[in-house]
């Protein structure tokens, strides 16, 4: 059996997730033993103009041009993996949606902004069908490899739908709320092995919210720990703004 042809693409992002993959270390050899990378702008010059098996896409969709491009990628591949918060949930690019588009364009491009078309930020699954998601900013490499294995084996990959707290407790970290710091772990999807908290940081919610969060309960918790509401709103806004697109579309239905 020949190795599946895999192409990496990027849209609006920092390309940090590609860097994570390129910087994987020794397990990169095993990964390259299992796949045939035909295009990967950050690490190779070659381009690929034929069909391929797997597209691995980083970044959010923010322009009409990007919409066309992602649709073409979708047509050319059998399996599409969105990886990194920008691609899976919109990520930090979602903050753009807090402002009128014209204001954003003027801020960035100055007086000639009309020449630069733009659209509100969307996550890749909000534009085309996505088969696998690898959340995270950046992606957590062990999870990336697990998803790749699922793709190769033709199996589904279930993103854990419970809180980061679950993995954080299993790692026996001191809860950062005990240290008087606010953390989005209780409402954020696990799967990262509480990577940030293990290393002394907090959870910024980069993996998106669990599908069934207790929003009123979370408000109670925030009140109890005396956390200003706008601080939490800003924290949620940082990665999860594109969630509103799904919510408003749900309302329309």
């Amino acid at each position: 059996m020949s190795k599946p042809k895999v192409a990496f693409f990027d849209f609006a992002c920092c390309e940090g997730c590609q860097l994570q993959v390129a910087n994987m270390g020794e397990s990169l050899l095993d990964v390259l033993g299992a796949i045939d990378v035909v295009e990967f702008r950050e690490v190779m010059s070659e381009k690929w103009d034929q069909d391929f098996d797997v597209a691995i896409v980083e970044g959010s969709i923010t322009t009409p041009h990007a919409i066309e491009k992602i649709k073409k990628i979708r047509e050319r591949c059998k399996v599409l993996i969105a990886y990194g918060s920008c691609a899976t949930i919109g990520g930090v690019n979602g903050m753009k949606n807090n402002f009128p588009l014209d204001k954003i364009r003027e801020e960035v491009y100055g007086k000639d902004y009309k020449y630069f078309e733009t659209v509100e930020t969307r996550a890749v699954p909000q534009v085309v069908k996505v088969d696998y998601l690898v959340h995270g900013c950046p992606v957590y490499i062990p999870e990336f490899v697990n998803v790749l294995k699922a793709v190769l084996a033709g199996l589904p990959y279930q993103v854990p739908d419970h809180a980061v707290c679950v993995e954080c407790k299993l790692n026996e970290n001191v809860c950062v709320y005990e240290k008087g710091v606010t953390c989005l772990g209780p409402v954020t999807k696990a799967g990262c092995n509480s990577w940030c908290i293990n290393n002394g940081n907090i959870c910024y919610g980069c993996r998106g919210m669990v599908t069934n969060p207790n929003e009123n309960g979370a408000k109670d918790v925030i009140e109890k720990y005396n956390v200003p509401m706008n601080l939490v709103r800003n924290k949620m806004n940082m990665y999860n703004q594109c969630r509103e697109i799904d919510q408003s579309e749900q309302k329309k239905r």
Binding site: A163, C165, C175, G185, P186, V210, N212, N214, N216
Partner: peptide, 13 residues
């Protein structure tokens, strides 16, 4: 149920 965040802390500990 209204208060619980379902973070799983109670059972893990």
């Amino acid at each position: 149920g209204k208060r619980c965040l379902a973070c799983g802390n109670c059972t893990n500990v």
